[in-house]
Structure formats: C-alpha cells, structure tokens
Amino acid sequence: MSDLAANPALERRASGRGLLIAGAALVAVAGALVPFWTTGAPFLLMLASQAVIAAILALSLDLLTGNTGLLSFGHAAWFGFGAYVAGLLAKLVTPEMLIVVPTTVIAACLVAAVTGAVLVRQIGKTFAILTLALSQIMFALVFVASDITGGEDGLQGVPVMTVLGQPVVQAQTWYWLLYGVLLAALAASLHIRRSPLGRAWLSIRENAERARFIGIDVNGLKLLAFVMSAGLGALAGALLALFNGAASPDLLSWFESGKILMFVVLGGVGTLVGPVLGGIVFTFAEHYVSSLTSAWLIYFGGLFILIVIVAPGGIFGVLGHAWRRMQGQGR
C-alpha cells in the first residue's frame, strides 16, 4: 500500500486509506486477543505462536527480496543460525533473554556483513545459488560441530528463558512477547519503506542501473538490506529455539528455505504485510494438511507452481487488486 504515496491518485483514496488503517488496527487487536480465545486449547495457542514466528521470518526475507529484488534461496541459514546460537548461549552462558537475543542478532549481522559483502555483488541467479550454498554450509556446520550442537538429534535441553531474571513459562506471555516483536518489526519495516532509505531500496529493485546513475550506493544499500534481513531472520530463529527449548538441523535444510520463500511468494513479494499473512496462513494450512495426508509436499509444490504461474502477486497481490478495483468503482 505504500506505493500510494508516489501515486497522483493518492488524495482520491484518502478515505480508503483511513478505512485500511482502521482495518489493520482491528486485525492487530484481534491478533493480540488470541490467547483469550484459546484458553481451552493450549495446542492452538502454541500453533499460533509458531505462526507468529513464521510471520517474523517471512517479513525478514521480504526485507531483502521485496526491497532490493535479491532472491535468497537460503534464508533458512539465518533462521537456523539464530536458533543454534541462541540455544547454545542460553544453555552454556545465561538464559537471560535480554542478553541472548541481542547477542545472537549481532552475531548474525556480523556474519551476514562479511558473506554479504561478496554475495550482494552478484546478479540475481548467482545470488540465489550462492545463498542456497551458504545455507547448505551452515547445515554442514551443525554436523561438523556435532559434539556441541547435537548433530542429527538437534540441540536439546535449552533452559527456560528469563527476562530480567523472571522466568517466562506461561504460554500466553510467550505469545504476547512474540506478537509484540512481530508488530514492532512490521511497523519498523513499513516505516523504513516510507523513508528515503526505503525509496532508495525500491529504486534498486526497479532498476539498479538507473539507481546507480542518480548517485545511489547500490551495493552498500543491498548489503544493508542483506544484513538487516539476516538479523531479523536470526531473531526469529532465536525466538523459536527459546520458545521450543530445542533446535534441529531441519531448520537449516533447503526445504525450510523453500518454505520461507513460499510464505513470501504466497503473501506477495515486496508487500511486507503480505508475507506476514503468508507465514501465518501457511503455518496453519501446513499443520492441518499434513495431519490429513502424508503427501503434502506434492500439494505444497503444486501450489507453489500454481501461484507463480497464475498469481505472481500472491494472496496480497490478488486482494490488493480487488481492493483497487473496488476503490475505482466507488469513486
């Protein structure tokens, strides 16, 4: 929706925007109330928490892909990196969340800055292949260091998290914590999108050559997007490891990367809100479909193909299209 600001039809749609903001606020509040609806179904609340983590993860990939057009096939690298680093820190150093999580994010940003310096110079397909390779290397690292990471069995026995010394045990508290992180990350992303930085990113996505001609530091900004995306991805991973009390090498598999990409494509690349919805919808759908049939990978792959061919804009693209049409008729 942020595209509206550049649109001469903006004023016409001002009332529509008010409606949108009210709707978004309503959805946000409804999301916060989830623990009250699910008092009798602890499993549902857990699933909702997982969905929120998936949403943060999807948002982190969209920060890169949606903003700069760089397509990462190995985003699980950062998710798994965050999970393992946070899990190990909590286990070996301190279970204090306010220490573990920032340290993890900073570590991920540092690694991303070093690898990204080479990666972001690559054109689209080479970048896609190399990010895939990077995630495979992180996957391999888990097995190289299997005496501390647990190898195939995964990292077990991550202690209960504390915030300022208070242990976080209640499922509701966890949910609100995760949900707060999601809202903050989404608000920050939307804000950046409107800022000069966001504009510069979009110009790179649309035409990197022209962006360079008007004096934008293309590689520098791509690297910034890569690092931020990796940092938020690692944050999602850290939260997952602390929430589950465990991390498994599956988090780093290329299948996981595909799933994250699916969240983003399903929701609509570059819409920020779309991938968040995609992550939530997909997590629930995955749970219910996989409880019905073991062949869900077939449906998953088929859906992926169908979306790319029929609706490249994803759910949010289709909804946005319908919304604009409705607006057009109302005027």
Partner: peptide
C-alpha cells in the same frame, strides 16, 4: 519467476 517455478517443481517431484 523461473527460479521460483523450478523450485516449486523440485518440491513437487520430491513429494
């Protein structure tokens, strides 16, 4: 789109 599409194909065939 072609990257995404062949990725979906890979998942489908694997499934």
């Amino acid at each position: 789109d072609s990257l995404l599409l062949t990725f979906g194909l890979a998942l489908l065939i694997t499934g």
